[in-house]
């Protein structure tokens, strides 16, 4: 190619590139529209004065009032919060403890743990939910007569489905989630700091507390938030294991089925606002604490392990060769 012909080609290319870039930007805009229109609709109709969900008849706060004064809504909300908090705490504590130690188990035990984690991630929520239902029912049926028999007083406690079984189900996935997120982070972490700490005669516990955990802080927080969100929004596990505890998604589902009540829009709007605020807060907090955007645990690579993440085992090893390539090329 001669220098003379290269200039116009480059210009043409740049022009075409601009066109491509612009259409990409337009495309992105359309996808965001797609993502947000339903939410806008929900928010808009939560202020609708009429019952009709398809015609906007005027501004009113009726549905907020109604939802706020409905004891069933409040109870479901409180149940959901309790369940999500408990599941996320269990998931974070157990998951973090396990992730820190798992690499020092014997290879066989490591494999067992890996298989269990993998299972927890890939098992369809509906299958887990109904298995727990069956297991709780069977166990309670066997254990309760014993409890009643052995209990000193008359009021023997009885086991059954309820918040506990929902928490059990939700936290299974949560533990796997936290473990995956943390293991991915640990794999990237440089252990020189820990060595230095040990060289300086810090006890292992102190090293853990003062060196390892702070470095993992954002990942742990990210894991907690993901586990919480999953448990809070989950419908299907709770649907099977809830016993008599109503959760918010289940209440919304049964309200939808039995005729339309715009107060569900009000509840949803409150949830949207709370979530967005929490997310903004987390974003602000995390980007300030650690320099560089990548510190945001929800958005960096470990978050490919978001929600129902089977890719961690699959994509985990898959990524490394590609990293290697990148390193090889750039050096």
């Amino acid at each position: 190619m001669s220098a003379a012909s290269k200039v116009p080609t480059a210009m043409r290319r740049r022009k075409r590139r601009d066109a491509v870039d612009r259409s990409l930007a337009v495309y992105a805009g359309l996808v965001y529209l797609f993502l947000f229109v339903p939410i806008v609709i929900v928010v808009l109709f939560s202020f609708n004065s009429g019952r009709h969900v398809t015609q906007f008849e005027g501004f009113s706060m009726t549905w907020y009032d109604q939802a706020w004064n409905d004891p069933m809504v409040l109870e479901a909300l409180s149940n959901s919060l309790q369940i999500a908090t408990a599941s996320a705490v269990i998931a974070t504590v157990f998951g973090t403890a396990a992730a820190l130690a798992v690499r020092r188990l014997s290879p066989t035990t490591q494999r067992v743990v890996a298989i269990l984690t993998y299972l927890a991630v890939v098992i369809p929520a509906i299958v887990l939910g109904l298995s727990i239902l069956l297991a709780f029912v069977m166990f309670a049926d066997w254990a309760n007569p014993w409890l009643a028999y052995l209990w000193p007083g008359d009021d023997a406690p009885e086991l059954g489905l309820g918040k506990l079984s929902v928490i059990a189900g939700e936290s299974i996935f949560g533990i796997a989630l936290v473990m995956t997120v943390l293991q991915a982070r640990l794999a990237q972490m440089d252990d020189s700091l820990e060595r230095a700490s040990a060289d300086l005669y810090a006890t292992p516990w102190r090293t853990l507390r003062q060196v390892t955990l702070p470095q993992l802080g954002s990942a742990i927080f990210g894991g907690f938030v993901l586990a919480f969100t999953f448990a809070f929004d989950d419908f299907i596990i709770a649907f099977f294991t809830r016993g008599q505890s109503q959760t918010l998604p289940i209440l919304l589902f049964s309200s939808i089925r039995r005729g339309v009540n715009p107060s569900i829009n009000a509840i949803a709007t409150v949830l949207v606002v709370v979530t967005v605020l929490a997310l903004l807060l987390a974003l602000f907090f995390l980007t300030r604490r650690t320099p560089g955007g990548a510190a945001l645990p929800l958005l960096d690579d470990t978050s490919s392990a978001s929600r129902e993440d089977p890719a961690a085992p699959a994509a985990g090893p898959a990524r490394t060769p590609q990293e290697r390539t990148a390193e090889k090329v750039s050096t």
Binding site: P71, M72, E75, L133, F136, V137, A140, D141, N144, E158, L159, G160, L161, G162, G243, Q244, Q246, L251, F253, S254, R257, R258
Partner: peptide, 23 residues
């Protein structure tokens, strides 16, 4: 009165059969 709503009789039944439903 603690009201628990269900979408069908079948759901109530599943719960009652599970025992210790608190209902």
């Amino acid at each position: 009165v603690n009201v628990q709503v269900y979408g069908s009789t079948e759901e109530m039944e599943t719960l009652l059969r599970a025992g210790n439903s608190g209902i």
